[in-house]
Design a protein around this nucleic acid. Structure first.
Lengths: 97, 97
DNA sequence: TAGCCTTACGGCATACGTAAGTATA
DNA sequence: TATACTTACGTATGCCGTAAGGCTA
């Protein structure tokens, strides 16, 4: 699993349209389509219902959308918390030992 | 940020030794060293204290270790929860609309 | 046939391994 | 000098864009 696949998936799941998702991601449709295929293969589940004219989420897709948002939020927090150590030094001197 | 950098970092932070971390990851020392350098540049903070003979975590490194573990746990849960939708179908039929 | 997604292919960027280099105790 | 981390360089893998292909209303 990679964050790239999760980021692409959230964009597609929210837009329900590959071209718009690709626009939002600043890339072309093609890599987005391939990424969704790769993600489905990786997880072994269908994330989208492509039978209809419009793209829709399967149940697995709905579950992953919530989970992926949590992952990305956790990543953002990890980056922020680490950067903020510059301004919030440890209270005691021996925490680094 | 990538999961690869976080996975490598957790290995190094837990082993406090690049060769052992590399062994655990199934790769060579060299890419691990480069990854840690890249991660520090990305975050703009020092994660390791390299002045001593042994590798030690800075305060920022200790904070990131906890955060990175949370991220990786969240990812595992995301994958599991999505895969389990195959055995736990939605209770109602209209959740996919 | 118009709109949307997918596949093929070539090029670029990223990541690895080997091996040489640097530093410290 | 032994141990551990870093840097240089060539190769392999991964990801992207362009363009062609397929499908459905």
């Amino acid at each position: 699993m990679t964050l790239r696949l999760l980021r692409y998936f959230v964009a597609v799941a929210e837009e329900l349209h590959l071209a718009r998702a690709a626009d939002r991601l600043g890339i072309e449709q093609s890599p987005v389509s391939r990424a969704m295929r790769d993600l489905e293969r990786l997880l072994g589940v269908s994330l989208f219902d492509r039978s209809a004219r419009q793209t829709r989420l399967t149940w697995a897709g709905q579950v992953l959308l919530g989970e992926a948002r949590r992952v990305l939020a956790t990543v953002d927090q990890a980056v922020q918390a680490t950067k903020e150590t510059l301004h919030n030094p440890p209270r005691t001197l021996d925490v680094m030992r």
